[in-house]
Structure formats: C-alpha cells, structure tokens
Simulated scan of single mutants.
Amino acid sequence: MDNLKAIVIGAGMGGLGSAIALKQAGYEVEIYDRVSELRPVGAGISLWSNGVKVLNRLGLGKEIAQIGGQMDVMQYCRHTGELISNIDLAPLVAEVGQRPYPVARADLQAMLMSVYPGEIKLGHTFIGLEQDDHSVTALFENGHTATGDVLVAADGVRSIARKYVLGEAVDPRYGGYVNWNGLVPMSDDLAPKNMWAIYVGEFKRASLMPVAGDRFYFFFDMPMSKESAATGGDIRDDLSRFFAGWADPVQTLIQRLDPKKTNRVLIHDVEPLNGLVRDRVALLGDAAHATCPDLGQGGCQALEDGFVLAHYLMTTNISVVDALKRYETERKERTSAIVTKARSRAEQIHGKDPIATQQWYDQLQHEKPSDVTDAIAKIILRGPMK
C-alpha cells in the first residue's frame, strides 16, 4: 500500500500514537482536532507494561522512562489506615518483561507531540464523512475537507464517527461513580516515593501513584447516582465530607491538593461495540472502546490499537478495507473483554452489590501477592506485544 494517506481525527493518546506508527510506516498523515489548544483530559494515567511496550516499539523507550514514575510496590490499606496487603511488582516485571509507568498526562502528550513530525491542525470540528471505493473524506464545521485512503477516528468517548460506522448511535454509559484527580508534590507523609498506595473502604477509594518530577498522581472515587453527580460543590469541602474519618495521609492529601488544578470527572464507558470499522474508516481508542479506568488499560488499549492498525496496513496488501477488517477482528475481541472486565471491576470496587464489595475487601487481605501480579500479567500478555 504505497503512498497511503491517513486522516486522523483526534490528537489524544490514541490519535497521536497511531499517527506516529503510520508515519514510521512511511505513510502520509494529517491530524485534526476540534480544540484550539491541546490540553490533556485528566492529570495522570497508569501505563501498564503492554502500553509501554508499544511506545518502546515506536522508539520512545528512553522518553517514557524519563517521564514515568518508579512504581515498585502496590499497597492496599483500609480507609482507616491498617495495612491490607503489600505487593512487590518485581515478579510482574520479570514475567512480562517491562516496568509499568504512571505518568502525568501533560508529560505524555508533550512527549508524543514532540516526536510526531507533522502539523496538528487544531480548531477543526469533525462533523461527518463520505467515502467511495477509492477514498474517504472528512468534513469539518469550518468547511474544510480532508481526503485520504483511510480515516482513523480517534475522536473520543462521544465520537461522531461511531454512529457512521455502526449505523446507530451508541451513547456512553455512566459508570456509577465520580473521580477526582490531580497532582501533588511527593512527600513521605503521603506515601513512599516508589509506591502505589491505595486506600479502600465504604465503597470508595483514595490513591497515590508516583510520576516524574517528584510528584504523585492522586485520585479519589465516590459512588454516586447520576443525578447527584451532575453538580459538585467546593472540591476540598466535598472530599473532606466524603472521606471524613479516613487515614491521616488521605486527610493530608485533601488539604494539600490544589482545588483549581483538581479534575472532577463523571466516569463513563461504552458498551462493547458490534463493529469497529466500516470500509475505510476505523474507530480507535475511546471512540471504539471507552472503558472504566479500574483496570488502568484505557490508554494502553488506544496505543495497542494504533500499533495493530499500522501493522495490518503495512503488512497486508490486498486492500485498505481488508487490512481494516483484520484490525477489527484482532482488536474487537481484546477490547470487548477489557471493557467488560473493567465495568465488572468498577461495580465490585464501588458497591453496586455491597456484599460483593465486602467479599473483595476480605479477598484483598487473604490473597497472595502473586495472585494479584498474575492477574495483571494475564491482561498484559493477551495483547499484541508479548
């Protein structure tokens, strides 16, 4: 498929990752995004080893290691502070062959933008597309059009392209909880600098993960009806109320965070889709499989998508349509399983069935650390990067 031209809609992690992979394959790429200024959604993200391996394959191993946090240990504590389990991640790294890296989203986006060799065309709101036997054309609100051989729709959880690909609208589903997230300076009164600290209880979570720059990425989870979640109050007041009586590091975190730089997000996912492609159009990332963040696989799956898409476009030469069908076959099974498992995990953590959540708390206390790392490894190793 010489001289292939790809139109990429969306300059998030999936769009940039796929654009870099396609550029490295020798294809012409144009990226469009509706925003006038690129700002990452959310403060941080956990990149498990499968996502890091894709970045390594793209030649970004050194760069991701520089912006990633050194996470050596996972530790679960009760919300009142008592230790539940301490999990050394070295066996996981040994099994899968790569460290995981929690990263600040702004650092990750800046890294991807710095290595993408082309222009990112901002201020272009994607409104639809047309295709024939030979090409596909993206239509934008400002009247601009862009024509290529393949269109990569990485346009997010509320994707415009998804309705076109499926022939029907599939709206995001509320995941049942609200998430607050941000960044704070590292300090020993919060957590050790090489630890992912997780406090659980009352169907809630508070968490700290190390990222580069001597910072922790933090998040809080609070189960809430969609009606109650629709409006939020003062962030510090809300968190102080929702997490009253929690352990001292959690109280310290609430007082130390910057409310103006803390994000409040209603968690949504998209149910597994019947298809991911339509002829020359491929859904990618959240447009294809937005997932609850409870497995830490959302960004990793977007990176896997881009790698697999470029792989089939580069290695099969029947047609673009054939390559995209191969992409769909490989990615649909993988991502549907992740979406389903992450939704189940979210419900288990956040008390949809209070008895099941209590059983999970009990399980945390009694399961072997190897059970935890083996479960994570299984998810990682089912991807395209062994």
Rank of each mutant, 00 (worst) to 15 (best):
Q24E: 14
N50S: 13
A65F: 03
K53C: 11
K53L: 11
K53Q: 14
V52K: 07
A19K: 02
G17V: 06
L16G: 02
Y27S: 09
A21D: 09
S46P: 00
A25I: 11
E63A: 15
L16F: 10
E30C: 06
Q24W: 06
S18W: 00
E63Y: 07
E37H: 14
S49F: 01
K23W: 04
G42T: 12
Q66I: 03
G61Y: 04
S49V: 02
A25V: 10
K23M: 05
I64Y: 08
G15R: 00
V54C: 04
K23Q: 15
L16E: 00
L58P: 03
S49E: 05
N56L: 07
V52E: 04
E28D: 15
L55G: 03
I64Q: 06
Q24H: 09
I64L: 12
G42L: 08
K23E: 15
K62T: 13
P40D: 09
S46W: 11
S49I: 01
G44H: 01
Q24D: 09
Q24Y: 06
K23V: 13
S49Y: 01
S49W: 02
S18K: 02
W48T: 01
P40M: 11
N50Q: 15
I67S: 00
V54S: 00
G61F: 08
K23S: 15
K62F: 00
D33V: 10
A43W: 03
L38S: 07
R34H: 10
Y27E: 00
G15S: 08
G17W: 03
G26M: 08
D33E: 13
L16H: 07
E30N: 13
E30F: 03
A43M: 08
K23T: 15
N56F: 13
G51W: 01
A43C: 09
R34Q: 15
Y32R: 08
A21N: 07
N56E: 14
G61M: 09
V35F: 08
